[in-house]
Write a protein that binds this DNA or RNA. Sequence first.
DNA 1: GAGGGTCAAGTCCGT
DNA 2: ACGGACTTGACCCTC
Length: 340
Amino acid sequence: MRIAWCCKWLPPEGTDAAEATAMNLRGTTVTALMRLSPAAAAARLLALVCANLDALQAQIAATMARPVVERAMRIGSEVLPLYTHPIARPHYAQPSLRAPIERGLAAAGRLARAAGVRLSMHPGQFTVLATKLATKSESALSGTIEEIEYHTEVMRLLGHAGGWHPHGAHINVHAGAKAPGIEVFRTNFVLLSEDARGLLTVENDEVSYGLGDLLPLADALPIVLDLHHHWLHSEGEHIAPDDRRLDQVRSSWRGVRPVAHISTSRRELMPHWPEDRLPDLAALLAAGLKVRDLRAHSDRMWNRAVNNWAAAHLAWADLEIEAKGKNLASAEFAASLGLA
DNA sequence: GAGGGTCAAGTCCGT
DNA sequence: ACGGACTTGACCCTC
């Protein structure tokens, strides 16, 4: 059983803020890189990558120091900044950049495996396997494939690729656009490398692909259930851990411990809502709140009823905590449930 | 150093 | 038709 934090390390009470800053990944922008000479751009990327590799190892080390139940984390996608962009690609092909990346990621992966830290990644919203095959979207599809193969390459260099979700690793995406339909996702999924297909998972979202829409893919890749997205997509259902639909979700993982996501709406939206009562979507909408507002993640897991409901799902899945309070929220969540 | 405009990409929603 | 939100605010220029 694992509880994961996501991407960014915030300094726990009484620790050094500058130390935490050094533990986080940094990116850059295409325009900033383009303004530099090729030599300066190469130097800039090398400096960023080296800092990020150190930061990643520090994140894993900090995660190792947590109780066993908290040894899981999501790696930020900017670990190798602009890796898939044409402006950066020639630089990443250079041995001067490639060598430290291979060394650094191999060391990070060894560290994670030695301490049983489960690793995941989550490519951004531009990653859409369900996308039309029309000329207009061809670049969207090729960009999506490049992006997934980039994340796969990071996992490969960590030593977490080859076969079926080695060490529990996964690269999680949303399905994409609604119009083409889920079978287009399946068609495009086949275009990925074998390593990528062994790492990819697909997550339900609030607007396009709900849990029921993804179940037809259960034979192709694991389904990540986002409990908060499902709550919004299903018009307020707090799905039970023994719901029959979850049988298919579980089996989609083919023996690997499943992963689910939990987050909750911002408390400021419902200042008078009791902390020990599950938020009632119909009541909140009737009170004038918008789904769009309710999608936003809270800082902390502030609602005990939500936490107990989420904790019941630990019976079958590891949980990634998606809260703006990051590691602080996940540690507090684990502690509040008496798990850590 | 602080403030504020800008940021590679797709899709959906509200105006 | 267009701006904003989303994974997540960070980056980077100007003063």
